[in-house]
């Protein structure tokens, strides 16, 4: 009789991803979080990132503790999903991505999600930063203590991408996701130094508190836009024509 696979079975099955492949995929997901404007894609990338980070946590933590990190990450993603769903769905003219006009082709509906006007600039910045950090992380002087090389690279890459994301946006949801990248990088480093259960719980609580605060700020931001208080830095949009 087949039994339900244990954590160790899953680790064995995903063995081909452990180490550098997980790091590269993690950085790719981080790049998507920072560069892509559409919240569903960015949130999906963040979720993938927590799954891949789980594989890296196994390198520094006992697997039963690493699974706690994974579960907290998934819970954070779920909280952000419900927040964004309430705040940005259905798309309104105030949404970061307003609804496509009637009669638009499928490509015209999808394209704005993938390629906002500054996507290329964001990708360029993120790639330059990643290149710089990859170079730095491989130098002996920049090797963090008690951290294996794939985790070292992930820490540098995620913290750099997170800080870049924070610098590029003032949307609470996007800034929150970027902040979570920084926190993930920090946890990868900190948990390789300190494995006490108390700190594990404290960091889990901090992650959930961050998700809660981001959720509140996102809802408040959307409500401010709906109630129509003008943001002085944004040019006013033309009122919808009464057809």
């Amino acid at each position: 009789m087949n039994s339900f696979p244990t954590i160790f079975d899953w680790i064995e099955r995903l063995d081909f991803l452990r180490g550098m492949p997980a790091t590269y995929l993690l950085l790719l997901a981080g790049l998507v979080v920072v560069a892509v404007w559409e919240w569903r894609i960015a949130l999906f990338a963040l979720t993938c990132q927590y799954l891949l980070a789980g594989l890296l946590f196994i390198e520094v933590l006992e697997p039963r503790l690493a699974i706690v990190k994974l579960l907290v990450g998934l819970f954070v993603s779920l909280m952000l999903y419900f927040t964004a769903r309430q705040a940005y769905w259905p798309p309104s003219p105030q949404s970061p991505l307003p609804p496509a006009p009637a009669g638009a082709s499928p490509w015209e509906r999808i394209a704005p999600m993938l390629a906002p006007h500054n996507l290329l600039f964001r990708i360029f910045l993120a790639l330059v930063l990643l290149l710089l950090l990859l170079t730095l992380a491989q130098r002996p002087g920049y090797q963090l203590p008690a951290v294996p090389p794939p985790v070292n690279l992930a820490i540098f890459g995620l913290s750099g991408l997170g800080l870049l994301g924070l610098a590029l946006t003032d949307n609470p949801l996007r800034a929150g996701m970027a902040l979570l990248l920084v926190m993930l990088a920090f946890e990868l480093f900190y948990n390789s130094l300190e494995q006490s259960v108390l700190m594990l719980i404290a960091l889990a609580v901090v992650n959930l508190a961050i998700a809660l605060a981001v959720g509140y700020l996102t809802q408040a931001h959307t409500r401010a836009q709906v109630t129509g208080e003008a943001d002085p830095r944004v040019a006013p949009t033309a009122p919808p024509s009464a057809e």
């Binding site: 924070l166 920084v182 900190y190 961050i210 605060a213 700020l217 931001h221 943001d231």
Partner: peptide
């Protein structure tokens, strides 16, 4: 919750306080 400027200020405070933690 009706002020975008207030939201930005709170977001900045929140980000800086969180970044102090590491």
């Amino acid at each position: 919750a009706t002020s975008a400027a207030s939201g930005r200020a709170a977001l900045r405070y929140f980000i800086f306080a969180t970044l102090a933690l590491p």
